[in-house]
Each structure stands twice: as structure tokens, then as C-alpha cells.
Amino acid sequence: MLEIYKSVKELLKLDRVCIDNTIFRLHYKATVIILITCSLFATSNQYIGNPIDCITENVPSHAMNSYCWIYGTYTVPERLNGVIGRDIIQPGVGSRDGASEIKFHKYYQWVCFVLFFQAILFYMPRFLWKSWEENRIKMLVHNLNSLVVPEDNKEERKKIIINYFKLNMGHHNGYMAKFFFCEVLNFINIISQLYFMDYFLDGEFSTYGFEVLKFTSLEPEIRVDPMARVFPKVAKCTFSSYGPSGSLQNFDSLYILPLNIINEKIYVFLWYWFIILTILTTISLVLEAFILSCSLVRKMMLKSRLRCTRLHNVVKLLAECKVGDWFILYLLSLNIDAVVFEEIIADMSASIESAV
């Protein structure tokens, strides 16, 4: 298993410098790892066997496997419920007349590609933010984010931060706006992907998690397995060819789809993960908007990162700062040792007071 996921190991590394928040990291870190892992797992023949196996006598099995994998299998929706072994052999598999509706299934062959494409979309806001951020915080906190900060280096780095802040005070609103724009992109992306997966699964994804949860509480005789409806483990396929005399012949065969055992579990997990992530992202955006509109909250958030600095130093400093300046200070507080950051705030406050 470790050999399969060797390519994911790089994504598990945490950045030494924090330039975002926890919800942002859930999008580009946790969700990307989940999607890539699921994509790799869906292609691991070593653990699920062949993705499709046919049961047929008249056509070579390898030809039927290739044909039905390419053109898709189908189930009969009216045969989804019933007692297996008496009414049906498997959910969705049974006899049908000419008027019976059939449902074709081809999306399972695209699952691994779609999951990987979704992972790329989840990483795009992070890519934009890193491009716009230009390692600004990393350069400012250089050598100040370690457990032990050398005294000779500390004073020099403090002066660099204070001088940078004095020269650029009032010019960080664009920096803050770009970060907030990327957070909005995260929200747009997660909503769009919910609609996209519902379209990809023929309208089944929107209620998939609820249906699976409800399925476990119903009586076996009346319940219809939503996982079997979306990802059938056994399906049918019809292969048409010409006989020796040139007449058309149809060969109806059963197919076992081991790949769907993995797919159904993947999408149950993704349904709950995406719903939770959507709720958390919405709450985060509302809180961000509240923080940006309330100076008192910004003061208390910055003060919470300090231990001994008097509140009036923070108030005095923030009185001269714009929202973007506060955002830079807050990011610095996440990356710099608390004692060193307190000294920087005190020196900044004294510098502003002397200038006034």
C-alpha cells in the first residue's frame, strides 16, 4: 500500500510558514490528499482485481470485457428491489420487457480521472494565493520562526520587520483583498463541485449520503440500496454481431464490476466530507466578513496572540493601521515566537508614538 501512495507523501509535509488559515488548508491540503488517494486507490488492480469481469459463453470473455467497459453496462431500475435469489439475482439485474426502462452506467470508467481533476481545482486557489503572496511573510519571519532565536540575529530581523512595516503601512489592503478573493474562490469551487458531481452521477449525488443513511434503517424487503443504484456491482451488457448467415445476433451477458465496490465507498465519504467542508467554509467567510468590519474584534484577535504587551500598545498601533496592515501583523504573529512578536509590537508602537 505504501508503494502505491509514495507520490502522496510530499503533500503530507506541513509548511513551516503559515500564510493562510485552517479552513483554507482543509481545501488545498486535506481535500487534495483525499482526492488523489481515492484516485490512486480506484486504479489499484492489485487490491480490487479486474475492473470488469463477464459471464458469457458465446463470445470470448476478453472481447466482451473490452466492449462493455468501453460502451457501458446497464441495469433495470424497476428490478432494484426484491428478494435476491427469488425475485432478482442482484439489484437492478433481471428480466425486462420491451417497455422497461434501462439505465446505462459508463461514468465508473472516468472516476479516477475526475477525482484527479477535482484535486487540481481544489489546489488552484492555493496556487493563486502563493503567486500573489510572493513569499512576503517567509522573508519577514526568516530565522524568527524557530524554537531558539539567536540574539545577534534577532535584533537585526526585528529592525527589518519594523522598517518594512513603517515604509509600507497603509499599502497592504490589496494583499488582504487577494487572500479574501482566494477564500471566496474556495467557496465557489466547493459549491460548483457539488453540482458537478451530481451531474457526473446522473443526479444521484445530491441525496447520496442521506439515501445511504436511510437505507440502513429500512426493512430488507422494501429497501433499495442507493449504492447499488449508482454503482452496481452486477450489471448487464448486450453485444451485437453478425452470424454466419449475415443475420444480426444479440448476446446478453452478466458483468461483475469489482471497481464499484471501491467507488461506492469513495463517494459516500466524499459526500459527507464535501457537505462538512461547505458548511465550514460558509461559516469561515461569514466570520471573515465580521472581522473585517469590526475593529474591536481585530484588536482582540491580535491581543490574544500576545502575553504581556499592554492593550494600549495594540490599540495605539492599530489606530494607525488599515485592515491590510492588521492582516500582515496577524500572519506575523502566527509565525514568530510570542516573546519576539511582543517586542516587535512594543517597538512599533513606540516608533509610531515618537513620529507623532
Rank of each mutant, 00 (worst) to 15 (best):
V224P: 05
L329T: 07
Y267S: 02
D337R: 08
C112K: 09
V297L: 09
E10S: 05
L140H: 01
W69M: 14
E342N: 04
L80T: 01
C68N: 06
G49S: 10
Y175S: 05
L311I: 14
F179L: 08
L302T: 07
I160R: 13
S241Y: 14
W110Y: 08
P258W: 11
N313G: 00
A355I: 05
Y28Q: 02
A338Y: 10
Q109F: 06
W326C: 12
G324V: 10
N143D: 10
S146N: 05
Q118F: 03
L259T: 13
L218I: 04
P226D: 11
P226W: 12
I88H: 00
W132P: 00
F180Q: 11
D152I: 07
R307K: 07
Y208M: 07
S61G: 04
F239I: 04
L115R: 03
T282W: 00
Q90A: 13
N168I: 02
D97V: 08
V314R: 06
S61C: 10
N81A: 10
P232F: 14
A42N: 07
S100Y: 05
A119T: 05
I88S: 01
Y242N: 06
D337K: 07
R16Y: 08
V114F: 04
F116K: 02
I344L: 04
R25A: 11
L285H: 02
I191W: 05
K233H: 02
M1R: 03
N168T: 14
N163M: 07
G174S: 01
K158E: 15
H312Y: 06
S95R: 07
G72I: 13
G246Y: 05
S245Y: 09
F127S: 09
G82R: 03
P258A: 06
N153W: 06
A346G: 00
P60A: 08
M139S: 13
S131E: 15
G49R: 09
S7I: 10
L329M: 11
G243P: 02
T31E: 03
N186K: 05
F341S: 01
T216A: 03
R157V: 10
E134R: 08
F41L: 08
E204Q: 12
T56D: 06
T56N: 12
E3F: 13
S247K: 09
Y108N: 11
F116Y: 06
I291Y: 13
S351P: 00
A228Y: 11
N335H: 10
I34D: 14
V32R: 06
T22P: 00
T31Q: 11
I188Y: 07
D202G: 03
I160M: 15
T309S: 07
S217Y: 11
E204A: 14
R86D: 09
L128E: 08
S304T: 09
V83K: 12
K166L: 15
L311D: 13
A355E: 04
N163E: 15
M348P: 01
Q109R: 05
D337E: 15
F341C: 02
A235T: 13
W129H: 03
Y28D: 09
D15T: 04
C68L: 14
M139P: 00
F179D: 04
V314S: 03
N189Y: 03
T37W: 02
K138W: 01
F251P: 00
D198M: 02
R96I: 15
